[in-house]
Amino acid sequence: MKKTLLASLLLLSISGAAMAETPAEKGLRIAQEGNAYDDGFVDSTSDMTMTLKNRTGKTSRRVISAKTLEGKGDGDKSLSLFNEPADVKGTKMLTFSHGLKPDDQWLFLPALKRVKRINSRNKSGPFMGSEFSFEDLGSQEVEKFTYTFLREEACGEGNKLKCHVIERKPAYQYSGYTKQVAWVDTVGYRVPKVVFYDRKNALLKTLTSTGYKQFLGKYWRPSLMSMINHQSGKSTTLQFSNYKFKTGLSSRDFNKNSLKR
């Protein structure tokens, strides 16, 4: 009896070692799987309405249309066109995202007809005064973080999904966060919730994504993202509409010279 117990204990530990995956490895694997799951969307376009709400409840609006081209071997390319507020109408932002290397970013200022390459030093800064920072809105390439798998639990609207809970720490310079904790759906790799911790490791913001819709029978995209800043009491919602995939965009639509059109 003792022997069998020993043997089975041995067996257990051997099989455990064979499957052993440290929390870091598991976290990375899930991030890679999530990234791979999104492969092949080719390109997409969508309209965004950003609503900023301050502590007293006063709101202001930004309207942006976005185009994304899936990167092959490198990060995605994206182009945002601002329609509101009226004073920035026609402003365009072109981003070539990379892994650990800083993203390339150009801004087109319509009044001056000037294309300006900008640096990404202050990626932690607010995007147009909102609770979303540039780094929140950038393409989430796998290499940008180191990962730790924490646990598995129910998540999403009505806790109907099962999620991996993963801690991710920015691997790039000048992030505004020490870490983020993300809930990643085990099947469709939706991310219903992300919690952000500031440079002092204090709770800063919570992002909740809802109204997920599936496109091309595969790719999940949220209809609403809601960011709450726990420290300032301000919040921003981001509403998505008119998602389109495989629209036939090419790299010429993301040429910095085409910004001036």
Partner: peptide, 9 residues
Amino acid sequence: LQYTGESTI
């Protein structure tokens, strides 16, 4: 000519 470093351009 422009060189865009992360902090200094």
